[in-house]
Design a protein around this nucleic acid. Structure first.
Lengths: 234, 234
DNA sequence: GACACACTCGTACGGCGTTCAACTGCCTTT
DNA sequence: AAAGGCAGTTGAACGCCGTACGAGTGTGTC
């Protein structure tokens, strides 16, 4: 490991190579969106760009670098409102929801997001703005960091599981209701020894799953922000 | 996908094959702990058990099944206290910390945990007990689920990032202070355009990282539980 | 002695990330 | 106009991967 792509100085001066790498990164994000992390290979990416796989190694040192670029690219889609406009609580809420929908748009993000230190330009801009929210709330020193981490951890944790559910449903090719039904049929015999679980499963299956996800996400987020409010005093 | 390993009825009656599969699963967990998810291959696992790689396919249908077994195996290590003893808040706190330390012991867990529906026996037992905590707190209906999800999402989200940091440090082979120092050296030039970030980075680097992680985890967890308390009324 | 069956193994296939030396075509220098 | 350098591309090859398959082995039962 010689360092992050963001710290290595470019070996070639960028006459028009910058544009070309941007193309590669854009194609990477597209391929990831279409086929998932497991579906990304240098050969397929090459094919998508009508280029041999090995050509990509001119623009990028390794497949991991590619993911690092793709990751920072998507950070740009998360918007972090100014707390001056929406208030800290509104800003935090919008931020979390924007993060959630970005991850839903790019379901491969959870698998990639923690695998490297994020010091790309968009990551930097994002943290700067996120910190501003919690500073505006009244937190100081290390607590600014702690509050931001809590919201990000909760959001990523929640949406990682949401996205894997969504992916399973989508890959099954079945309508949600059918999928849910069949999943229930699998789970119920397995839950025979746990009677309380059965009630829970039936409760879960009885409502629109997407609405339930929204409600559940909001429940946790609001609780967390309520907890911040307690800490911040009256 | 013909279903989860937990729902397929075994093709062979289990005379002593149960023991053998248990051995395979145990070896899988060990190999994962030692070498991480990327370090697990059927050939290496075979070697560890002094057996050809293809032999494993007698005991397991696919590598994915292996991960499903390994996952459920580690669920047994998470303990979920009885809310009658510690109170719901104490129980939730212990549960979250137990989950965190289990994931730290098995750093490959975050990458695996969401990739399948968890209906193994240990997963079932775990959810049953986790639900009991939040029912004891006073939540009813869907809110029991929502509260449990929130704690689990937060914990997994937090520890996924923690574990990836710990892994990077461990793999660097350097002492933490050295690693932190060098990471700072990388980040600071990249953060040139973002002056607020620099202060934050210096603040972060100025303290024991492990203590900071504990503090940060507790901060978020307490906030979340405070938020629950608000919802539950006085 | 024969058969069944649980279990093991070697071989092989197609795909993966990556290395490397060879090639192409354009730009600059003379 | 000739020569050289260099950005960019390429195909072949290496060692790894998950896994399908058919052939083997040993033990237990009739």
């Amino acid at each position: 490991m010689t360092g992050s792509v963001w710290t290595r100085t470019p070996a070639q001066p960028p006459p028009r190579e910058a544009l070309s790498r941007a193309q590669v990164v854009r194609a990477t994000v597209e391929l990831l969106d279409e086929e998932g992390l497991a579906g990304l290979s240098m050969r397929k990416l090459g094919a998508k760009l009508s280029v041999a796989a090995t050509t990509l190694y001119w623009h990028v040192q390794t497949k991991d670098d590619l993911l690092e670029y793709a990751l920072d690219e998507t950070y740009a889609e998360i918007d972090v409102p100014d707390p001056g406009l929406a208030g800290w609580r509104g800003a935090a809420t919008l931020f979390a929801h924007s993060m959630r929908s970005t991850v839903i748009r790019h379901p491969w993000l959870p698998a990639v997001v923690n695998s490297r230190i994020s010091i790309g330009p968009n990551a930097m801009a994002l943290s700067t703005r996120a910190m501003a929210i919690f500073r505006a709330a009244g937190f100081t020193g290390r607590d600014v960091d702690n509050a931001a981490s809590a919201v990000i951890s909760y959001t990523l944790g929640f949406v990682a599981s949401e996205v894997s559910w969504r992916t399973m449903v989508k890959e099954s090719g079945k309508p949600v209701e059918r999928w849910t039904e069949e999943a229930m049929a699998q789970a119920i015999p397995a839950a025979e020894a746990f009677p309380e679980i059965k009630d829970l499963l039936e409760l879960r299956a009885s409502s629109d799953p997407y609405a339930a996800l929204n409600e559940s996400f909001t429940f946790g987020l609001e609780s967390l922000l309520d907890g911040f409010a307690v800490r911040l005093g009256p």
